[in-house]
Structures are given as structure tokens and as C-alpha cells.
């Protein structure tokens, strides 16, 4: 499952999956090319006494996570962090709203990992704000991604059938 997190104004990409009794967690900080990988046995992340006992690199933390979906407070050892966690559903929303999270006036980016289904424009086209640019499949749903403003297509970076990672540039304006 893919997440993006915002902590102390820094953005992180996080992949969480279950593999034979371990949590496989990949973490990448904005600006870094390296994914940090962690194999955390289920038994190292367990509830005890109404709090999570998290054994991380053999350090034992008692952790409490309070979340209303997006805003998240995590407490441990007298310290705490305020962070935002975007799950796939929220990222999709963001993506549809803004034409790609991280997208701007010079490019369209994938807000989450997915597969390109259809491309509706050609290089050189001038497209009005809000018109569909391409269709991407994510979370088993096809989503139209729209032009964030009036733009001229300068380059297509993908073709139908391509799998794309979150944050990948799809179209340059």
C-alpha cells in the first residue's frame, strides 16, 4: 500500500506491504534517490496494554498513533510528531483535483502508482484548462487527468500500457 507523508515540511514516500510475517516498509525522503527498506516482523509491532510496542532496530518504543485519516499525531518516549498521511484514496482525490499531486504549470505528474490506459492529446496541442489529457488506471479505477490550466503540450513521456511510479512526469507543457 502506498502512502505519502508530510513531516516537518518534508515529503516522504512510503510503501507498506505484508510479506511472510513481516511488514516490508520502503521509505524515501523528498530529494533523495535511495529507498530505505525495513523488514519488521509482525511480532515487533504489536499492541500491548492499549499501546503499540514497536521494536525498531532492537530499540523498544511504546508508540501511540492518533489519526483522523489525514492528520496524524504519533507519540513515543515523551516526544511526538505531527504529520500528515495521504493514503491511496486521498492521493487519488488530490490527483483528480489538481491534475496530479506535485503537478504544476509545467508538467503533469502521477499522484500515485498506476497504469496509463489512454492518451488523449498529441505533442504540440494547445489544451484549455480542465480538458482531459490522459486516462490512468489506479486502484482498479480509470481516472481522467485534466489540464491544470491552459497549456501547450511540449512532450509526452508515457504511452498507453506504461506502468508509472508516483511522482513520475507524464506530460510536459
Amino acid at each position: 500500500m502506498y502512502f505519502e507523508a508530510l513531516l516537518k515540511k518534508k515529503k516522504y514516500q512510503i510503501n507498506v506491504s505484508k510479506r511472510d510475517y513481516v511488514w516490508f516498509v520502503q521509505l524515501k525522503e523528498e530529494g533523495s534517490d535511495e529507498w530505505d527498506e525495513f523488514h519488521i516482523p509482525y511480532s515487533d509491532f504489536e499492541e500491548a496494554d492499549n499501546i503499540i510496542s514497536f521494536i525498531f532496530n532492537h530499540e523498544s518504543y511504546l508508540v501511540d498513533v492518533v489519526s483522523d485519516g489525514l492528520d496524524c499525531q504519533v507519540y513515543s518516549r515523551g516526544s511526538y510528531r505531527d504529520l500528515k498521511i495521504y493514503n491511496d484514496e486521498m492521493l487519488l482525490h488530490e490527483s483528480l483535483k489538481s491534475g496530479g499531486m506535485g503537478g504544476n504549470d509545467s508538467s503533469l505528474r502521477a499522484g500515485m502508482p498506476g497504469k496509463i490506459v489512454k492518451i488523449l492529446v498529441n505533442e504540440g496541442d494547445e489544451v484549455a484548462a480542465g480538458k482531459p489529457l490522459l486516462v490512468m488506471e489506479a486502484m482498479k479505477m480509470e481516472n481522467e487527468m485534466k489540464a491544470p490550466s491552459n497549456v501547450k503540450i511540449t512532450k509526452l513521456h508515457v504511452k498507453p500500457g506504461d506502468n508509472v511510479e508516483s511522482g513520475a512526469t507524464l506530460i510536459s507543457f
Binding site: F3, A5, L7, K8, V25, F54, F56, S67, C72, R81
Partner: peptide, 22 residues
């Protein structure tokens, strides 16, 4: 004041907890 515990602990815990929630 917050440097004494690695941010990763909080990020990973939040991510696993969010996974479980989903």
C-alpha cells in the same frame, strides 16, 4: 528539542497503523 528520537520511528509507525486502518 525533537532530535533525540529518529523521525523514522514515527513515520513507519504511522504508515503501518494507516495500513492497518485501511
Amino acid at each position: 528539542l525533537f532530535k533525540h528520537i529518529d523521525d523514522k520511528v514515527f513515520l513507519i509507525a504511522a504508515a503501518i497503523a494507516s495500513y492497518k486502518n485501511r
